[in-house]
């Protein structure tokens, strides 16, 4: 077994775990870490000097934004339209005082880019976990795919489901486990509480993460929306009443 590299970086207000199972140059990790800090510096709504804060507060104009920032904002807008506003980066006051907060998409987008960086450095078997949202490639061990747990909503150390994922996969869970935590429905401005958690499985964490947020806001209807509009994705939804709902083919990912 290759020794691989484990690295946990606290950045963007969360722990990002890089679990690489190939023998690669440590400079690959340095590159990813530098990228994540670049994303933080660019998109953080906690940093008043970040371009996203400056733009959100009207201190710079759109044409002063880098192409990268404009691309992300364009992506956010397309997801907002597609989800009929359930995903909306311009609704709730951000920490910087503006009402522009693309964090809900930036996280998945930046981790997907991080995965591409690792691949460019020759890594083929790795798992990146950013605050519970995961982009992975290849296998955990030779001939053994990654075993990914979906957190049980009320038993933090247990899994509500264990999946076996390999090749190229992304999985994201939107939830409010702790008291006081909340996800705001952009349409009402109120916290949504219909579901305990929503997990989406797909290939590209950019969308998987954003859709997990949108479906969480939409509730069970959102899972049906996903089933109709994105049959290439799978969803696993946990209600507060101890019931779960899953898309018809979600079961294929369950670990045996």
């Amino acid at each position: 077994m290759a020794t691989g590299i484990h690295h946990v970086e606290v950045v963007m207000g969360m722990a990002v775990s890089l679990d690489v199972r190939d023998d690669i140059e440590s400079s690959a990790i340095d590159t990813v870490v530098a990228w994540l800090h670049h994303v933080d510096a660019t998109f953080s709504t906690y940093k008043m000097e970040s371009p996203i804060s400056q733009f959100g507060l009207g201190l710079i104009s759109a044409d002063q934004l880098s192409e990268e920032v404009r691309d992300v904002l364009t992506l956010c807008e397309s997801v907002r339209e597609e989800t009929s506003g359930a995903f909306n980066i311009a609704c709730v006051p951000a920490p910087n005082g503006s009402t522009l907060d693309p964090s809900g998409l930036v996280k998945g987008w930046s981790i997907e880019r991080a995965a591409e960086l690792l691949e460019a450095h020759g890594a083929t078997n790795f798992c990146i976990n950013a605050g519970g949202d995961i982009a992975l490639r290849g296998n955990a061990e030779p001939d053994q795919p990654w075993r990914i747990g979906i957190r049980h909503p009320s038993e933090p150390l247990a899994s509500a489901a264990v999946l076996s994922l390999g090749g190229r996969a992304a999985i994201a869970t939107s939830a409010t486990y702790e008291r006081g935590a909340h996800i705001i429905d952009p349409k009402t401005g109120e916290p949504t509480a219909e579901l305990a958690s929503v997990t989406i499985v797909g290939e590209d964490l950019t969308y998987v993460d954003a859709y997990a947020t949108a479906v969480f806001v939409m509730g069970l209807n959102g899972a049906e929306w996903l089933l109709e509009t994105h049959p290439e994705l799978d969803a696993f939804v946990i209600g507060h009443d101890g019931l779960t709902w899953e898309t018809p083919w979600f079961n294929r990912w369950r670990s045996s």
Binding site: S17, N129, R147, H152, E155, E178, L243, W245, E246
Partner: peptide, 24 residues
């Protein structure tokens, strides 16, 4: 195509990583 309903269960199997470990 409809959502499949089940009952929530808890597993303590070994995993490589956890989705939804926290959002906050």
């Amino acid at each position: 195509p409809k959502l499949v309903q089940s009952t929530l269960t808890a597993q303590n199997a070994n995993v490589n990583s956890v989705s939804g470990a926290t959002s906050t």
